[in-house]
Design a protein around this nucleic acid. Structure first.
Lengths: 176, 176
DNA sequence: CTTATATTTCAGAATATTCTGAAATTACAG
DNA sequence: CTGTAATTTCAGAATATTCTGAAATATAAG
């Protein structure tokens, strides 16, 4: 009934720690790690036991993961319980998280900068320096976003190719 | 004595919120925002008043920011107080944070994966599936790191150029 | 419909994090 | 030295987050 090896535990615990450093709760990260390394879909009861957490915590955390688009429900023949699984393609996972963080965090920041700059214009604010800084921040977000747009669509294999080119592309473009 | 406009407050508060979503304490992020938009170096006392926080909190938070390499001390002529300032180049800031997060979070994860895989080999672990997943995760980190290595050195203006190319580079490389 | 199983919700407990205030330490002017 | 200003430290308070357990709700088999 889902017995974790010490190696699997190690991986899951580490992933939990990582999560906390990125604003994701330990449990949510651990569940994701468990689903990632387990060969079959796992049900809530099994997660409860494997990670020694409350049933309700599993429920909430799974919802959170579903909110990120990282976990989906499946069903096992002859079993009424919901079973959960996550993606096996790490790049795809990464892409999803990027997209979601952009939506949740970058876009609102963009809006805030826009608002601040608009208000500054309206009030003929004489605070040149702050305006300069806000513009530079806006420029950063704009440029970073463009870079992101250009690569967001790349497949896993494309990334691997790009990584394998050893930087000559960028050198050729004289972007050193 | 460092009076914040409502726009400046808005920016600082937003930045504080953002911080919490990325595992950085509200205060630390707010102080960073304040230093970023303020035209002159700011001393601890001023931060205390401007953000309505305890003097000791300023001290600790500044230390944290210094730990990230984002804030440095300067001195104002005829004033014994330490004054603080941060970078004005957002890209440089971003680069520093990336580098530091890599060191603090990616490298340890790399090491953990290495350890897990080594242990698996030693114990002739028959858990093929988990091994596969760990290898794939390792591959992701390796490739992502290579991509990062290739761009970490790019200057701010190079990034802007790259962003301006509208993706034709990647298309030309048939990396769609 | 009844009953058993499964899931969700949510108030409050447990825990973790952040912040404060007082005391200790450091730095330096006189 | 001595005294004062500046900074740091850190125990515990305040706060925020996460987690639990019990109750409510949903689902479906009989």
């Amino acid at each position: 009934m889902l017995e974790l090896s010490s190696i699997q535990k190690k991986y899951i615990l580490h992933w939990g720690e990582m999560g906390t450093k990125w604003g994701i709760s330990r449990t949510v990260a651990q569940i994701h790690a468990l689903l990632y390394i387990w060969p079959e879909p796992v049900n809530a009861e099994e997660i409860t036991v494997a990670l020694s957490i409350a049933r309700s915590n599993v429920s909430m955390s799974i919802k959170e993961l579903q909110g990120w688009g990282l976990v989906k429900v499946t069903h096992v023949m002859g079993n009424r319980k919901d079973h959960f699984e996550t993606l096996t393609d790490v790049w795809e996972m990464f892409r999803i998280v990027m997209e979601e963080r952009k939506r949740r965090e970058v876009d609102p920041t963009f809006a805030m900068l826009e608002e601040c700059l608009a208000e500054m214009k309206k009030s003929r604010d004489s605070d040149k320096y702050t305006k300069e800084r806000l513009l530079e921040m806006q420029d950063f977000f704009t440029t970073a976003n463009k870079c992101y747009e250009q690569t967001r669509g790349l497949s896993t294999s494309s990334f691997r190719k790009l990584a394998g080119m050893g930087g000559w592309v960028l050198k050729a473009l004289k972007l050193g």
